[in-house]
Amino acid sequence: MSELVKINNLTRSFHGRKVLDGLSLSVETGKIVGLLAPNGTGKTTLFRLLMGLLTEDSGEIRVDGKPIGKETNNVISYLPDYFVFDDFRRIKNAIEYMKEYFSDFDEKRVKELLEKIHFDENRKFSAMSKGEKEQVQLVLFLSRRAKLYLLDEPLAAVDPAKREFIINTILGSFGEENSVIISTHLVLDIEKILDEVIMLKDGKVCLSGEADVLRDEYGKKLNDIFKDTFRYEEGGKGNE
């Protein structure tokens, strides 16, 4: 068990307002962690900082002991909460791209998964619904053998019947050598697979711990602990 993600006193402002304010956290290898907070409170910002899509104002971020850069990008698979393959015509074009530019992409796995959900790789993206596109995207990013998976709202666009498949796919990519951070405000569906939980409020960690320990301590579902924590918070709508 080593420290895969280490964040120390991270601050990031936007238009003069601090979105992340002295955030510190750490994630070990071999864990599925839930990053729980309402919308607009810094979850996506944190992921973007980990991916180098944003740079911090101050503080330290280390992934696998290294600073953010092309080496860390190589071991992180980031699933955004919107569809990124607009430029691509068919599923197989996206597969070719992933294969070409990500050395840890497992083509066999992606084909197995696509077969499970009955998606032919010749299907055009333009002929798919939003939920279907998100499913394919998830399958593509989870077919990378990455050390760290950052999943931004993986269940949001998918209907309840398909959520089990998503959860199983996540579990299938997960092992002792990697970690998954799932950022979501839909706690109910995902909580049973979480090892640990980190809740963000006012740009800092307000609650964190092992999922089962919290359940024991509070005698509640994580979803209910979440609701209690953010009860009077409307989610910072003004920050973007």
Binding site: M51, N73, I76, P80, Y82, V84, F85, D87, Y101, F102
Partner: peptide
């Protein structure tokens, strides 16, 4: 834009 999450995830400077 929208492609940043994909194109800048490529392990390249």
């Amino acid at each position: 834009g929208k492609r940043a999450a994909l194109e800048l995830a490529v392990p390249c400077s």
